[in-house]
Design a protein around this nucleic acid. Sequence first.
DNA 1: AACACATATGAGACAGAGTCTCAATACCGT
DNA 2: ACGGTATTGAGACTCTGTCTCATATGTGTT
Lengths: 140, 140
Amino acid sequence: MAEEMLDALDRAGVRLTGPRRRLAALIARREGHFTAADLVKDVGRRRLGIGRATVFRLLELLGEQGLLERIDLPDGSHAYIPCEPTHHHHLVCLECGTTTDVGDCGIEAVTREAARRSGFTIEQHRLELFGRCPNCSSAN
Amino acid sequence: MAEEMLDALDRAGVRLTGPRRRLAALIARREGHFTAADLVKDVGRRRLGIGRATVFRLLELLGEQGLLERIDLPDGSHAYIPCEPTHHHHLVCLECGTTTDVGDCGIEAVTREAARRSGFTIEQHRLELFGRCPNCSSAN
DNA sequence: AACACATATGAGACAGAGTCTCAATACCGT
DNA sequence: ACGGTATTGAGACTCTGTCTCATATGTGTT
């Protein structure tokens, strides 16, 4: 997972620096979504001495490579989810933060229908699903 | 439109104060989506002397009444759209900012399918469509 | 029409997210 | 090992949104 990110960065032609390796490791060991602030806190807790700006810069880089996607939580804050660089949507557990990807579940048909009704040309869409994961639903 | 908002506020049992009336008028004359900052700027330009906090407070109130919905633009910033208080989704023109509502276009089926595949219990979803409105598409 | 009091207001402090600058550092091809 | 360039950390800065609190303003009652 951390390897995967570093490979992608290498392929993108950026340098594999110490801070980037350490951050990749931190991200890899996270589960579910996390915010930039979470990462910054991790950095502080482990006294890695990595600056805030560097954290944001890596998040942006990984986003560009499609290895991380930024989602908008229901409360309006931003979070990141590690994921494959293919088009898909996210299912976020509101209780434990776990996320799962779901591929195309017929959303294409929905956007086509919306385009037909409105006359709009649709260029991008965002679908986010929130609920409870199997664990949290049953634990209840 | 401004009337509609004021009626709703009245029904909600809040006071119809001067600042609220003036803000409702400002919102009513806007087209498409707008940000809190846009409104604050309007207030400043017209020297209405309405505080920032009051603007945010009214946006929240109108949101609670379902007359305004907050959406997340692709760039991560927040905007508001005046709309009817029924469940629906938004189509946002990336060029001129116009928005249109689309009702249920089959999204229910999509969420059911995602729930089946993942085992999640889905509680809420957010679908936002971005593209170009008929005008902007033809103007090209 | 005036009252009484809860609600709303504006100003500005505050908190948090994210960006920018810049001098110092560290990667990496040669 | 070297040199040029990309990257870094620190901290200033901007922007969004929230909070506090003393003051002002609606509104139901009289």
